[in-house]
Amino acid sequence: MKKIETKIDEAFKNTFLLPREKTVTSFLADVFSSKYKFREDDKKIEVISLYYYASSPLSFLFALPHYEYYDTDKTIQIAELHLKEHSFQDYSPADVQELCKKILEENNIDYSAYLDENDHLDYAHYWENQSGLEIDFLMNCWKNAKEQTQSKMLGFLESSDGESGMFDLDNNYVIPFDVDLDEYLQSHGFMIQKEN
């Protein structure tokens, strides 16, 4: 089944992720290049939060100054990317199901045991990589945008529901819930002044 997982990974990337790569990278480059005016004052923003919509990670992204370092009351604009505005339709669990069925059929694998009473495919039995691939994709876009702009901005990726924890976009690291962000950044050599 590992071989099938790899084939589904590749199909998922080619079908849903790679077509969105240029748009997401351009959005992040715009964030780094100050296209979005987060505040009325000229305070330099060194740390941002990038959020994805939990139930559909690549339908909607938004970025803003990180809430632990900057007063949210002073934020006047949030950088938003709605991929529908760039001619990308959201992909649904049904779309992912169909993609999985196609790969299974192409490889002559009987998936009838994974169908429920409504003929919906429960692909969790053999493929659970979707979320990881989406997060890796966002981290890769972040890295590419930073290379394009030479930005030194730090960023943390979070889901809109806060359930997936916080990811350090620069180090591809999941920050455990019990770790203080300030201590974490200091351990990596960053001393960022918090706004009171």
Results as ranks from 00 to 15, higher is better:
A124T: 11
S49E: 13
D178V: 01
P19V: 02
L157H: 01
I48W: 00
E80L: 05
N129F: 10
A11V: 02
N118L: 14
E10T: 01
T149C: 05
Q77K: 15
F88L: 06
S92G: 06
S59K: 07
L17P: 00
I48L: 11
F38T: 11
S151K: 02
L58A: 01
H82K: 15
A79W: 08
L61M: 10
F62D: 15
G132P: 06
T72P: 02
Y36V: 12
F12T: 01
I192C: 12
E134F: 06
Y184N: 07
F38S: 08
K7V: 01
G132M: 12
Y184A: 09
Y70V: 06
E195K: 08
E5L: 00
D42G: 11
D178R: 03
S151G: 03
F88Q: 10
Y173P: 00
H125P: 08
Y123G: 08
T6Y: 04
K143L: 13
A113E: 15
G162R: 05
L17N: 01
K2E: 12
P176F: 10
E195D: 15
S164E: 13
L81T: 01
D71I: 00
P65L: 15
S55E: 15
Q89Y: 05
Y67D: 15
K22N: 12
Y53A: 12
W127T: 04
H188Q: 14
F88A: 05
Q77M: 15
N144W: 08
F12K: 00
I4S: 01
K2N: 11
N144T: 03
Y126C: 12
K146D: 04
L17R: 00
Y173Q: 09
G162Y: 06
C100I: 00
T75V: 15
L104H: 04
G189M: 13
I48S: 04
G155I: 08
K37M: 15
S34C: 13
D182L: 07
F177H: 12
T23G: 08
Q148A: 09
D30M: 09
I78L: 13
E106V: 02
T25G: 04
L81S: 05
P93F: 11
F60Y: 10
G165P: 03
K43F: 12
H120G: 11
P19C: 03
K146T: 02
S160Y: 06
F32C: 07
Q97C: 13
E128A: 13
D182H: 05
A113V: 12
A63M: 07
Y111T: 11
S131D: 12
Q186H: 07
P93G: 14
D178H: 08
P176L: 14
L181I: 05
Y53F: 14
H125M: 15
Q150G: 06
F38Q: 09
D110E: 13
E117T: 01
D170Y: 09
G165D: 07
D178N: 08
E85I: 02
V174R: 03
L169T: 02
N107F: 08
L138Q: 07
D71W: 00
K2T: 05
P19Y: 03
V179N: 03
Y69W: 13
L83S: 04
D178Y: 07
E134I: 04
L104V: 04
P176Y: 07
L28N: 11
N118Q: 13
D122M: 13
M139V: 02
A29Q: 10
L169S: 05
S56F: 14
E85C: 03
L181R: 03
E98H: 14
